[in-house]
Computed example of a mutant assay.
Amino acid sequence: MKRSTATVFLVCLTIFGLSALFAPRHVLAAELPHLMVMGEDNDQDAIPRDSRVFRRVLNELAEELNNDGFDVYDETAVTLDDFAQGRVRRSDAELIDIARSVTRPPIDIVVLFEIYASAERLDYTTKVRTRLSGRLLDVHSGRRLGNFEVASPRNFRAPVDCNRECIIETVGNNARLLARDVADVLIQKLGDEVDYGNNTGNDFDNSADTGTTSDLARRGNQAGCRGRVQDVYLNFQNFTEQEMLDMEDVILAKFSCYVDHRPASSQGRTHEYVYKTRLHTGKMKRNLVRALEYLGMSGRVSYQGKEFTVSKVNKRRNRYYNEGEKW
Rank of each mutant, 00 (worst) to 15 (best):
R3Y: 09
L10V: 14
L21E: 10
P24S: 13
L28N: 11
A29N: 14
L35C: 01
G39R: 09
D45E: 14
I47L: 13
S51W: 02
S51L: 07
R52S: 14
V53R: 05
R56P: 02
L58T: 04
A62S: 15
L65H: 03
F70R: 01
F70S: 02
Y73W: 10
T76Q: 15
D82G: 09
R87I: 12
R89N: 08
R90N: 07
V102C: 03
I107L: 09
L112Q: 08
Y124E: 12
K127V: 11
K127A: 06
K127H: 08
L137G: 03
H140T: 09
S141T: 05
N147F: 06
N155W: 06
F156E: 06
P159V: 04
N163C: 03
L177H: 06
L178V: 01
A179D: 00
V182M: 00
A183T: 00
I187V: 11
D195P: 11
Y196C: 10
G201M: 03
G211A: 07
G220I: 02
Q222S: 13
R228H: 06
V232D: 02
N235P: 01
N238M: 02
R262L: 07
T277S: 13
R278L: 02
H280I: 01
R286E: 12
N287L: 07
V289T: 14
V289K: 14
S298I: 09
R317S: 13
E323I: 11
K326W: 13
